[in-house]
Amino acid sequence: MNSSLLSETFKIVLLGTLAILFVAVNALFLVWMERRVAARFQLRRGPIHVGWQGSLQTLADALKLLSKELVFPHEANKFLYLLAPLLAFAPIVCAFVILPLGPGAVIRDLNVGFLLLFALTNISFIGIFMAGWASNNKYGALGSMRAVAQNISYEIPLLLSTMGVVMAAQTMKLSEIVSLQEKAWFITVQPLAFLLFFCSSLAEANRAPFDIPEAESELVAGFHTEYSGMRFALFFLGEYTAIFVSSAVAAALFLGGWQGPLLPGPFWLLLKTYALVFTVMWVRWTFPRLRSDQLMNFAWKVLIPFGILNVFGTALWLYFEKFFA
C-alpha cells in the first residue's frame, strides 16, 4: 500500500467524521432555532429553562431519544423497517461531499456537481417510502404513498429551475458556479428560477405548506408513525439536514455562495444558508397545508410550465447575447 492511498483514506475518514459531527450539531441547533423562531411567531418564549436560553434543550431531547426503548411493531417487515431510517439519513450526509464551503474548500469538486446531489437526496425518499411501507401501519402507508407522489412531481421543477443557472454558467461544477457570481449573484439574472427552486426544495424537504407525507392533523405522524427512539431521531436529523443542504445549495447557486466582503467564505455561506433556513421556518409557521391533489396541481400546472419557460427564456437570452456583445 503506498502512502498516498493511506493519506487519502485518512482524509476520507477524517472528513466523513467531521461531516457527521457537523450534521449532528447543526441539526441540534436547527431544532432549537425552529422552536425559538416558532415561539416568537406565536407570542410565547419557547424553550428557555434548560441551559442558557434553552440551548441544552435539544441535547436533552437527543439523549432521551437515545435511551428510549426501540419498539418493533407487530408483523412489520423487519429488514426494511430497520434499513429505512438509515437509508433516509445517510444519503443526505453524503451530499456534503460536493458542498463548496470556500474557494477550494470542497471535499470532491465533481464536474457533475449537483446532479450527484439530487441523485443522493432522492435516495432518501426510498428510505421514507420503505419506512411507511414496512411498518405495517395504514397511516404510514398513506404517508409514504404521498411522499413518493410528491417527490416524483417536485423533482422535475427542481431540476428545471437549476437548468437556467447551469445554462448561464456553462458548467455543472458547484465551485465554478459560485466563482462566477463574483460580480452579480445569479438571483439577479434568474429570479424566477430562484423562486421555483425555493418552492420545490420546500416540497422536497417535506416542509409546510407541503408537509403532506407527515401531515400531523391528518395522518398522525405519517411515514414515521411507528418509529420510536433513535430511529425516529434519524428521520428528524435527515429532515433538518435536508433543509440545511437545500438551503446551502440555493445559497451557492443563487446567492453567491461563499462570496462576500471582509469575512471568510464559509462564514458567508453559513450566514446565507441560515437566512434561507429562517425563511423556510417563517413559511412553515405562517401557512396552512395544501391538500395532496392541490400539491400535485401546483407542481404540474404552475411550477413545471414556469420552469420550462425559464429554460426557454435563458436559451433565447444566451443565443441573442452573442449578437449584442
Binding site: 416558532a38 411567531f41 406565536q42 407570542l43 410565547r44 409546510a208 405548506p209 408537509d211 401531515a215 400531523e216 392533523s217 409557521w285 405562517t286 401557512f287 396552512p288 397545508r289
Partner: peptide, 8 residues
C-alpha cells in the same frame, strides 16, 4: 388545516 400559529 396545518396552520399552527393562529391557535396561539
Amino acid at each position: 388545516l396545518g396552520a399552527f400559529t393562529p391557535f396561539f
